[in-house]
Design a protein around this nucleic acid. Structure first.
Lengths: 197, 197
DNA sequence: TAAGTTGCCTAAAACCTGTAGGCAAATGAA
DNA sequence: TTCATTTGCCTACAGGTTTTAGGCAACTTA
């Protein structure tokens, strides 16, 4: 009986492709076994569990995104860097919706720390070097950028902006413009006692 | 044999509570049957399918959020309205993480149109009445606000901001400040040809 | 109180996860 | 080459979830 040549890597890769085709929530050990024309139990020699498989796909996606982002950021700064990073982020999600959904999987802390998630926040910080932001404003800005990118893309993917003008790509571009302007003029902390009216 | 008194409403309510306790992804028809101490098949008289149940929970969550937001917005405008809306959004998600996850369920278009999702975007638009934004900037801003709120809350819920200073609540407040400033000075469309260097 | 309706039941099929143990193919050493 | 070991995929099975079909008992109403 010929062997299928399964490895954790091939399973992860095939799982990622499957996720993009049918949605991450439909990625199952059984479906993957069907894809390799192999019995379900066989996969459990290569992957600990369904959760393990999903985690591997998530880590793959995070790494791919980080690689693309690093590419895009090389040699750019300021608004150019911001726009390039944004483009990568949105592009990856549209190109690989299943992988993008996988990247949203909640990982346990040690797994997350070992993965490429940290590279992401470092790159976001790198973008902000083009702007003049001291701590703690810089951290607030990192969180804002992460929120906008993730929020926009995930709303777009779930169909929130379709069937309504203006086109989503236009809003995206204008939002980058707005974020750039905001980062250049990040407001000081308002005095929360005085300004009541 | 005493009857359990099941109705779609009670199932939806219990399902929402279960979601907050164990996570939306673990809300299952079986689990709900156990909760009511009833056989699984019995639920299918009240709910068409597992997906139907989840959809009902999602619609309940959207409605609850819209109700709270409408309350919070009454009598406020400008930054007050913005901050109140943001507080409701984040508060609901923290108070009811399972319901909030449910609200993120991708609904088919007609279901979404019938639900309270539209009330949300109308309210976001209402907030912007306190700022001087003409179309299409207003739509861009609506999308930005939605993205920030959703993105921030969902990153926070998945643990992105925990274990790192400054406290998440501080960033949230400062991001509201920043959004307020941004909306008051929303940038004109830059001339994309000229500014290359 | 009989008729009709409703509500929860048993039964069963289909599918997914996960474990245990077995046989055959690949590997490597004598 | 052959024999032992390891590795890879298999069968078998146990348990869980979804969903449909059909039945009986409990409410409702006339």
């Amino acid at each position: 009986m010929a062997r299928a040549g399964l490895t954790p890597q091939r399973l992860t890769q095939a799982g990622a492709e499957l996720a993009d085709e049918v949605g991450f929530e439909h990625v199952t050990v059984s479906a993957l076994a069907r894809h390799f024309d192999v019995k379900v139990a066989s996969l459990y020699s290569h992957v600990k569990s369904s959760h393990d498989l999903k985690t591997r796909i998530a880590l793959l996606a995070l790494e791919e995104m980080a690689d693309r982002a690093a590419q895009a950021l090389a040699g750019r700064s300021g608004k150019d860097a911001l726009a390039a990073f944004a483009e990568v982020y949105r592009g990856y999600a549209r190109e690989h919706p299943g992988r993008y959904a996988a990247a949203q999987l909640r990982l346990d802390p040690e797994t997350a720390a070992a993965g490429a998630g940290v590279r992401h926040s470092q790159m976001t910080r790198a973008i902000l070097r083009g702007y003049d932001l001291a701590e703690p404003a810089q951290t607030h800005a990192v969180r804002l950028l992460g929120s906008v990118f993730h929020g926009y893309v995930s709303l777009e993917l779930s169909g929130g902006f379709s069937h309504s003008a203006p086109d989503s790509s236009v809003s995206w571009a204008r939002i980058i413009d707005a974020l750039d302007a905001l980062l250049r003029t990040w407001p000081d902390e308002p005095d929360r006692e005085e300004r009541k009216a």
